[in-house]
Every structure is written in C-alpha cells, then in structure tokens.
Design a protein around this nucleic acid. Structure first.
Length: 884
RNA sequence: GGGCGCGUAGCUCAGUGGGAGAGCACCCGCCUUACAAGCGGGGGGUCGUAGGUUCGAAACCUACCGCGCCCACCA
C-alpha cells in the first residue's frame, strides 16, 4: 500500500488532505469498522421513526459468496442506506441458511476425499462435521459481507438452525399438522438414487435427453397389444396396459387380459383418458410404482403398485435381472424380449424430457414412498390473493404472471428428506405405529418403543419462515411488532418459486393481525436478474468467465464493484458486467475524489446559508437548477427500483454537469476574491455535499470519506437525503447555459477542425452573443475556448453557425485552413438543408396542420426558421471564404 | 406442449407516438495549474423482416424470422 498518510494529514490544507488518487484500500476497512463501532447499523424496535425492514436472503453455508450475492447485497445496502437517510428506523437483518441437501453434499464430498462416507461416521458425528463446516464457510461469508460494505445489524445475525428458528419450525409444523395441512402418505415422489432422498417438484430440473423408444408386444395372437416405451426395465412392475377409451383399434380388448412377457403374470387392458392415441402405438404400459402418470392411472383403476427397484434404482425382483442397476437392466430386458421375439420395432432415438436432481444432476427415479406433505391448496390460494389484491407488489410486475402460474397450479409439497442435516421432523411413532406430532412445548412420549421420525425437513421449509422466525416468532416480540411485515424483499427471479412463494404461504398463515387475518411477509418483492458477462453469457467455471467479487474489491474497491453491479440492475433484467466497466466505475470514484479535492483547494464551503437565487449568477443558478432536477429524477427512479437509471443519472450529473462544466466555468470566478466568488464557493460546497449524499447509498465508502473532508461532519450515513427545493429550479438559467455550452462546443470544434493545439492561443473577436443573451459570458467563453490570449500565434476569420438558433461570429482575422472550413460548412449546410426540407414537407401537409397538436406545429415552424437562418449564415460564411 | 420476454452503434443497453441516445470500444488532437484512472474533438445505426393503424411509428397492431428464459406427469 502506498504511503499517503502524510499527504492526508489535516494540516496539508490546500487539498483538504486528499491525495491525487483515491485509494480504496486505505479507506474501506477503517470506515467500516467505525460504522460498526458507532452503532450506525443497529436497529431499535423502540424507535418512534417509521420502520424499514429488509431480511437478507440467507446465503447457503456451502461456500463463499459469488458475484450474484454481491449484486443482491449491493441493491439491499443501497436501499437501506437510502432509507436511513430518509429518516426511517432501518433494520437489515443478516443471516445464513443451513441449506440441507446442498450443504450435506458438500461435506459428503469432502469426506469422500478421505474415502469416507457419512455412514462411516454415523449420524451424530456427521452432523458435527457439518457444523464445523458451517463455522468455516459462514465465517468466510461474513467477512465478504464486511468487505462489500453491507450495513447489516450484526447484533441480529441469524441461522436457520438456531434454537429460536428451530422452535419456529416445530411450532408451524405442529399448527399445520393440527390444521390438517400437513399429512403423511404413500405417494409417488421424485427420488434421487444418489442422494437417497425424496425431492420436491422444483428440486427437479428437466432437460431434453436422448432416449430410445422400443415397441414391445404383450400377449399372443388376437389378444396381442403392442406398447412403446423408453423404460423397458420397468416392465417388470407393469400391472396393466392402458388405451384410450375411444380408440377403435383397441376397443375390443378393453377388459381382457394379456400375458406380461418375462414374468408369467397376466395384466388387464384398461381404458383411460390420459392415453394419447396418436402417440406411439396408442397403448401404454402402466407401472404405478415407478411413473407418476401411471400412478395416477393406477389410482383411478385400483391397480396394484409393484415396486421393482430399491432406493438405488437396482432391480429387486427375483430372477435374471435382480441386482442390476436400472441402466444395466434396460438393455438386459430388451435382449431377453428380443430372444422371445417380442420386440416389434427396434430402438429408435427419441428426445424426451427427463428429470434430474438439481443438486447432483442424477436422473431422478419416480418412486412410491411414504413421505410427509404440505397440503398447499389453501396456503397457495392465500399467497396468490395477496398479490392479486395488491397487498404485495412484485417488481417488475411482469413476473407476477409467472408467480400466479405457479401458485395457482401447485401440487402438494413433499417436505420430508432422507438426510441428516436439517430440522428433524417433530413426529414420534409408537410401538403400535401410532403417530404423535410434538410441538416445541411438549415432551415426546416416554413409553417403550417410541421413536422420532428419522427424516429432516426440506430446507425451504425453514427458510420459508425467515421473515418472521428471525424476528422472534412465535413470540410477539417488540422486533416482530416493529419490523414485520418487512418492507422489501430483494432477491433474484430464479428463486421466486423456491423461496418467495413459500414465504408468502407461511407468512400469511402464521403471522396474524389482531383481527385474525394473515399478514404478508413483505410489501414489495424486488426481483433482480442474474449477473452475466459483458456478452450476456452466463457465468460458468468451465467457460472461465466467473468474476470473484473479492478480487474486484481488492483491485478496484468495493464502491467500484458495487457501482458496476448497480449500473446494470433494473427490475428483473440480467446484469452484464466486465472488468473494463469496473475500471470505469473506479475512474468515476476517482473523479469524485478529484472534484472534491478541487473544491477544497478552492475554498468551497458548506458553512452558512445558501445564498438566495436572486443573489446568484447564471452559472450558480444553473447548477443548482440541475441539482433539483437530478434529485427529483433520482427519487422517482428509486421509487421504481431502477437502480441502473439512478446510477446513470448521477453519473452524468456528476461528470458532465458538475465536473466538465460547472467546475470548469467556475474557475475564473474562484480565482478572484470577490463576494461573487464567495457565493460560488458556497454553491460549489453545497452541490458537492448534495451530490455525495445522493451517491452514498450506492458507493458508501468514497462518499463518506469525501463528505467528511468537505463538511467536517461526523458521518454521511446520518445526513439527510436531499430534497427538491423549487426555489432553485431555474429554466432561464438552464437555457442560458445551454446556449453558452453550444457556443463553446462550436468554437472548440472549429479549433479542432483547424488543427489548433490547446496551447495555441487565438486572437479573436466574438460577436453575436447578444442574440441569445449570453454576451455577459464572453470572458467565460474566451477562457474555455482559449481565445484572445496575449501573444496569440494564430489569427483567422470564421463565422460559426451554431445550430439551434444561435449564431456567433468568430473573427479571428487571418488565414485559416480553407479546405477544412469549407468541408465543415458544407456539412453543416447539408444538415440544415435536410432539416429545412423535412420541416417544409410537414408544414405543407394539410393533414398534419389539421390533426397534429399545436405545440408540435409550432415546434416544427421554429425548426424551419432556425434551419433557414442557418442556411443564410452558412452561405455568407462560404461566400466570405477565400478561394481555394 | 403451455407461458413470458427480447431483437436499436463493434459490445452491453436506455428510449415506447412528434428532431435516433449513453457507457465502453474506435479515430484525431492534447501532460490546459482537481483528475492521463484525465481533457477537447470526431466517425459509426434503412431501430430483426414484411404488412397494417396514424398527419406522423424505433415505439401501437398482425404475421414471420432469430434468440433467451420459465413451467409441464408426452409413455
């Protein structure tokens, strides 16, 4: 780290103690520690201020935070810092998720490196190992959150397996059980033969996989029927063949029996609407124990369910196939069938949708098994209604359609998992198989032979309680009273179903108002997209485009990293980032640093009242007016969660308006020691003060450092959010400065066209400024355009036709590059001619005059006048040019 | 199979009924006393295609083409 401490001591005044470049490393850690030690992040439930609450989407304790978390946290930190400045009592509650299957898999993989399985350790020892891992991984995550600048209330950190949260899990399980919204049943569920556990529907990912369709003849002679299947091995568990009731080909067979090959069993041919007569042969083998559809058919027709595979998907039926894995059994069964001449049509490739375990990608095996379920009907109904009736809004609104599609078609939710890491199901079974569900305040039965359910709950069961379990529910704590419902939930659209919908169901069920109605867990769901690379590609390790947020923080600073992420974060849209863009953000932070440095070197101040508009020159009135517009715009953009637009607005205000124009234009004024200069120093101090406030939510570190240097205040975190002051909205000043900018730009273009270096001074006469009322700014224009310095080494004559109604004569008395100037004028003339032609065409169109609004017509007329004036002036200028 | 969304400058994206924009990249010129992590200037787009509505369409409607995502029990 470079040693700039000396340069930054308070007595090196002229620069306000600021070095020439912003060094994030020297600022961030110290600032963060101070914020924590001063208690700026702490939330007080006894506060009189209105509450603003965000609970963090708890990261899984499976590793460290990735750049997607960095985006998620940046948005939340931006919101909570904004709300603190706006006067809310803010709680941003941190914590982590035990992430059942995901974490168990991580620890199992680590054990596998030592040739150990969890069974070698036993349940108790294994769970101990996972806790060790949690301590390690959790610590890393907390460190990353500090580096990002997360202003979370550390005193309220929670973990889904904390005692209090476990109590919440047991409480709601008991209530749901008593309300008959939790039940146990033998159902066909998604089973992962590798993780050896049941999975819920959304834990299954479907991909289109290549399969092979074979046609098999069941039965003999007239009774024979041909079925098509991709899963020949499940034939061993067939208990029927189904056809469509209206299928003429098979009508005569309905109600008869056929012989099931390889088994000697006879199975019925049944009619069921589910069968699509157009697919395959129009006849389906029915395996109720190993296919969800077939299970349904089996239920409707009272068919037996024959389980032919164990939990590892190995055939259990005695005989030649016993002991074969499902993929070994498939060709073996086909081969045996072929031997018997049963294969009617050989294998043909067939693309079909296959489910995979979302954690390990193993092909899911539908399996009949005894599991616990949540009856989702009434809960999902309430979750949908809360959005439908507007108690909860989803940002962006388009995503609520997806939400409805899901909650309105939800199946019952399988919540038991055959894992060791998680909340154990609070149910005991007696010696005679009796079931007792025990709540947190009850003792398990003490008699002989009682044992607790071995399974744990789906991880989303406990994270679904997060918005209130973290606040002390089921107790009515002061925290719950003050901070529930939470204000905004910020998360990626990818877990809308996994998490958001579950929180809605549980929150509305568990937390009750005084009148007994359910209270939504949050008022707004702010969904962001996925972080992608600069070409919009998904980040993946194999593609090598993964960004580690810590790496960027180390090299460019937390603020630059945050700004890069926030700059792409509009509701619901994916966020492309690249290292180059992060460098740009770093540059922006440095720009602010140097602007403040300039201000301090030139005596900018925040002391005393801001002079009233009437005492200020056009320049000061202009920047103050721009500031008011910026504040108004940023407020609107924050209200609609358009962080990218907030960043864009502030970036351009800071860089273009403040740095490129206001600072440059104020230099001549600030060089003086006049009352006007004093007023400008006050305005400059004010503008920077306000700008730093506006940027603080997004880039807290550099703004804090600069604001303290500028104002001598204690912390920007407790400064008030800027308000629009209409007394400083000044259209006249904005028009005046716009004209000035155009003139300066035009002269600069002329200089550039003429190949004049900045160091070359031009002796010039400026005329025509009074046409647009900016004659008083002539010295400023000269200063910015580098005109008329003593010892000028270039003289020329030119007429600059500035488009937009402004014309300026620049008399530079001498030879110029005639060819360059002619080219420029010809180009301008072409543009003006095109403009004039277009306007005339419009104005000559009777329909246009008759139907267009008056303002539009007036505007076009003005444009025509301008263009014609430009043409006259350009013609004169061309005339005046010496011949080539 | 159902649903949603997107095609605007080389890249990433704003703009949603009245003069085509930004950032980055690119070209030219500059160490101009806050900043070379900077300053000034510039080039570049028949707004996916074809119809339609309108005085007027990048924007609204229809169809098509291309891309992406989500859901789904097609054997």
């Amino acid at each position: 780290m470079t040693d700039t401490t000396e340069a930054r001591t308070p007595d090196s005044r002229p620069t306000g103690g600021l070095s020439a470049q912003y060094q994030p490393g020297e600022v961030e850690q110290l600032r963060y520690e101070r914020w924590v030690s001063e208690g700026y992040f702490s939330a007080d439930p006894k506060s009189e201020k209105p509450a603003f609450t965000i609970v963090i989407p708890p990261p899984n304790v499976t590793g460290s935070l990735h750049v997607g978390h960095a985006l998620d946290h940046t948005i939340q930190d931006t919101l909570v810092r904004l709300k603190r400045m706006q006067g809310f009592e803010v709680l941003w509650l941190p914590g982590m998720d035990h992430a059942g299957i995901a974490t168990q898999n991580v620890v199992e993989r680590k054990l596998a490196e030592q040739q150990l399985s969890r069974h070698d350790l036993g349940r108790e020892k294994f769970v101990e190992k996972v806790w060790e891992w949690k301590a390690e991984s959790g610590g890393a995550i907390l460190g990353q959150m500090r580096r990002l600048g997360d202003s979370v209330d550390w005193s309220r950190e929670r973990f889904t397996m904390d005692e209090g949260l476990s109590r919440a899990v047991q409480t709601i399980f008991k209530r749901l059980y008593d309300d008959e919204l939790i039940y146990r049943a033998n159902r066909i569920i998604n089973w992962c033969p590798r993780c050896l556990t049941a999975l819920s529907d959304i834990e299954v990912e479907h991909t289109d996989d290549e399969g092979e369709l074979v046609s098999i003849r069941y039965g003999e002679g007239e009774n024979a029927i041909v079925v098509a299947t991709t899963r020949a091995e499940t034939l061993l568990g067939d208990t029927a063949v189904a056809v469509h009731p209206d299928d003429e080909r098979y009508k005569h067979l309905i109600g008869t029996e056929v012989e099931l090959p390889l088994t000697g069993r006879r199975i019925p041919i049944i009619a069921d609407e589910h069968v699509d007569p157009a697919f395959g042969t129009g006849a389906v083998k029915v395996t109720p124990a190993h296919d969800p559809n077939d299970f349904e058919i089996g239920q409707r027709h009272d068919l037996p369910s024959l389980t032919v595979m164990d939990e590892r998907a190995v055939i259990t039926v005695p005989g030649p196939f016993q002991g074969l894995d499902r993929y070994e059994a498939r060709p073996a069964v086909v081969a045996a069938l072929r031997e018997q001449g049963r294969i009617v049509a050989e294998k043909r490739p067939y693309l079909h949708s296959v489910g995979h375990c979302s954690r390990c990608k193993t092909t899911v095996e539908p399996r009949l098994s005894l599991q616990w379920f949540v009856k989702t009907g009434p809960l999902a109904q309430a979750a949908g209604d809360a959005v439908r009736d507007g108690r909860v809004t989803i940002e962006p609104a388009e995503l609520s359609k997806r939400y409805f599609a899901w909650v309105d078609n939800m199946h019952d939710w399988c919540i038991s998992r055959q894992l060791w890491w998680g909340h154990r199901i609070p149910v005991w079974y007696g010696p005679a198989g009796e079931v007792v569900c025990v709540g947190p305040d009850e003792q398990p039965p003490s008699g002989e032979g009682w044992r607790q359910d071995e399974d744990v709950l789906d991880t989303w069961f406990s994270s679904g309680l997060w918005p209130f379990s973290t606040l002390g529910w089921p107790e009515r704590t002061p925290e719950l009273e003050k901070f529930y419902p939470t204000s905004v939930l910020v998360t990626g659209y990818d877990i809308l179903f996994f998490w958001v919908a579950r929180m809605m169901m549980f929150g509305l069920y568990a937390v009750r108002d005084s009148d007994g109605s359910g209270v939504q867990p949050f008022n707004v769901v702010n969904l962001h997209g996925m972080v992608r690379d600069q070409f919009g590609k998904k980040m993946s390790k194999s593609f090598g485009n993964v960004v580690d947020p810590l790496d960027w923080i180390n090299r460019y600073g937390a603020d630059a990293t945050r700004f890069t992420l926030a700059r792409g974060a509009n509701p619901g849209s994916d966020v492309p980032i690249s290292e180059e863009w992060c460098q740009g953000s770093r540059n922006f932070c440095n720009k602010l640093w140097n602007a403040t440095r300039f201000a301090l070197m030139n005596g900018a101040t925040v002391e005393g009242d801001l002079p009233p508009s009437s005492e200020l020159g056009a320049l000061d009135r202009w920047i103050l007016s721009r500031l008011q517009h910026t504040v108004a715009e940023v407020n609107e953009q924050f209200d609609s969660y358009e962080y990218a637009k907030v960043c864009d607005t502030l970036y351009h205000f800071a860089w273009d308006d403040v740095c490129d124009w206001y600072v440059e234009l104020s230099k001549p004024v600030l060089a003086q020691d006049t009352p006007e200069a004093a007023r400008t120093r006050r305005v400059l101090g004010h503008v920077l003060d306000q700008l730093l406030r506006l940027l603080h939510p997004v880039i807290p570190f550099v703004t804090e450092e600069l604001w303290i240097a500028l104002t001598g205040g204690e912390t920007l975190m407790r400064a008030a959010w800027p308000a629009v002051d209409h007394a400083y909205v000044d259209d006249a000043a904005e028009e005046e400065l716009a004209a000035l900018q155009k003139v300066v730009t035009e002269v600069r273009r002329f200089r550039s066209d003429q190949g004049l270096k900045p160091s070359q001074r031009v002796s010039a006469a400026l005329t025509g400024l009074g046409n647009v009322g900016i004659d008083t700014h002539e010295p400023l224009i000269r200063s910015l355009a580098r005109l008329d310095a003593p010892g000028a080494d270039f003289t020329a004559t030119a007429t600059l036709a500035v488009t937009g109604g402004i014309t300026v004569d620049l008399d530079t008395r001498g030879a110029i590059d005639v060819a360059a100037e002619r080219a420029r004028l010809e180009k301008d003339r072409a543009a003006a001619e095109k403009e004039a032609t277009q306007c005339r065409a419009k104005l000559g169109n009777e329909s246009f005059i008759g139907k267009a609004p008056e303002q539009v017509v007036t505007k076009i007329k003005d444009r025509l006048v301008t263009a014609e004036a430009d043409l006259v002036r350009i013609a004169a200028a061309l005339e005046a040019l010496p011949a080539a």
